[in-house]
Amino acid sequence: MTVRVLVVDDQALVRAGLVAIIRSDPGLTVVGEAEDGHEAIARAAAIPADVVLMDIRMPGLDGVAATRAILAQSADPAPKILILTTFDLDEHVFAALRAGASGFMLKDTPAEEMLKAIATVARGEVLLAPSVTRRLVQHFVSKPEPDLRTPEELAQLTGQETAVLRLVGQGLTNQQIASSLNIAQATVKSHLGRLMTKLKLSSRAQAVVTAYESGLIVVGDGSVRS
């Protein structure tokens, strides 16, 4: 199955480079381009895409706002959003993940790794650059007193759903979670779908952040996959 990609960046030269990289992979196809957040929303509504490569800093409407709008307007299954930026800054990482992005990569990522990143998020997995993963973990390490109170929403989860959320936060794939809990992968997928519905999460990446913020994961107990 060919993965359909929408490329969003305000710089024509960067877009051209990304398009050339994507077209070098026979398993990927470029279905459209956009130069700002507003155009990205319109293109995503008009042209079905599996993955949106989204620049985070654009004039008018940035990538975070565009991501939030695209996911809000999209029918199921919504496209996976892979954020691209030259800036490795915490506020952008968290804002993008909370908005529903499935991954976060720096623009200087080698072409081969970029193609792997697109394939990873297309499969529904979380993709964080190693430097971004370190910052995510350091953010919670630096908190003076972790908030270990269980949110009211988290109390809705069953024991198995909570266990799945914790392992998702540690970066495990569905196959690894199934092995760890001694259950079928289909069961893992069902638990994940239900917990994401209960917690109103739109991406696996948001589940990772929730696992940390809720105190389900204590730093040093596990880490997100990079």
Results as ranks from 00 to 15, higher is better:
149 R>E: 12
97 L>N: 05
20 A>P: 01
76 D>L: 15
99 A>V: 02
156 Q>L: 06
223 S>T: 03
5 V>C: 09
138 Q>K: 08
164 V>I: 03
149 R>F: 12
113 E>V: 06
169 G>Y: 11
71 L>I: 06
153 E>Y: 04
135 R>W: 03
208 V>C: 13
34 A>F: 00
178 A>E: 01
166 R>K: 15
21 I>R: 01
12 A>H: 11
124 G>S: 03
185 Q>V: 14
146 P>C: 07
224 V>L: 10
142 S>L: 09
188 V>F: 02
8 V>P: 00
183 I>Q: 03
119 A>P: 00
80 K>I: 02
130 P>G: 06
196 M>Y: 08
25 D>A: 14
210 T>E: 13
59 P>R: 08
113 E>R: 09
206 Q>I: 02
174 N>H: 10
3 V>E: 03
175 Q>F: 14
132 V>T: 14
192 L>F: 07
83 I>G: 00
10 D>R: 08
88 D>H: 00
157 L>F: 02
62 D>T: 15
104 F>I: 06
202 S>L: 14
149 R>H: 12
67 T>A: 14
110 P>C: 12
136 L>R: 09
30 V>I: 06
194 R>T: 09
106 L>S: 05
220 G>D: 11
168 V>L: 08
200 K>W: 08
59 P>D: 07
98 R>Y: 12
13 L>G: 07
175 Q>H: 15
33 E>H: 07
32 G>E: 03
79 P>L: 06
197 T>H: 13
201 L>N: 10
137 V>K: 13
206 Q>L: 00
62 D>V: 05
27 G>L: 00
171 G>M: 04
21 I>F: 10
173 T>F: 05
172 L>M: 13
145 E>I: 15
171 G>L: 04
14 V>A: 02
86 T>A: 14
10 D>M: 09
93 V>K: 03
109 T>E: 11
150 T>W: 12
189 K>T: 15
102 S>P: 00
100 G>A: 10
60 G>F: 02
40 A>Q: 02
79 P>T: 10
138 Q>P: 02
58 M>Q: 05
224 V>G: 05
208 V>A: 14
167 L>V: 04
175 Q>V: 14
90 D>P: 01
105 M>S: 13
140 F>S: 13
176 Q>W: 07
126 V>H: 00
138 Q>D: 11
198 K>A: 11
176 Q>T: 10
147 D>K: 11
29 T>C: 10
51 V>M: 04
92 H>M: 11
122 A>W: 00
9 D>P: 02
174 N>K: 09
88 D>I: 08
222 G>F: 08
81 I>Q: 07
174 N>V: 04
117 A>C: 00
58 M>N: 07
133 T>Y: 00
209 V>S: 09
153 E>T: 07
209 V>A: 04
125 E>I: 04
26 P>T: 12
95 A>F: 08
66 A>Y: 06
98 R>N: 09
73 Q>T: 13
114 M>F: 15
158 T>E: 12
80 K>A: 14
177 I>P: 02
115 L>D: 04
52 V>L: 04
95 A>D: 15
175 Q>E: 14
79 P>M: 03
108 D>L: 12
83 I>P: 01
41 I>D: 06
63 G>N: 14
187 T>N: 05
96 A>W: 09
23 R>A: 13
34 A>D: 01
214 S>K: 08
107 K>G: 14
35 E>P: 08
74 S>P: 01
152 E>V: 11
156 Q>R: 11
184 A>K: 04
112 E>P: 03
39 E>C: 03
9 D>T: 11
141 V>C: 09
212 Y>A: 00
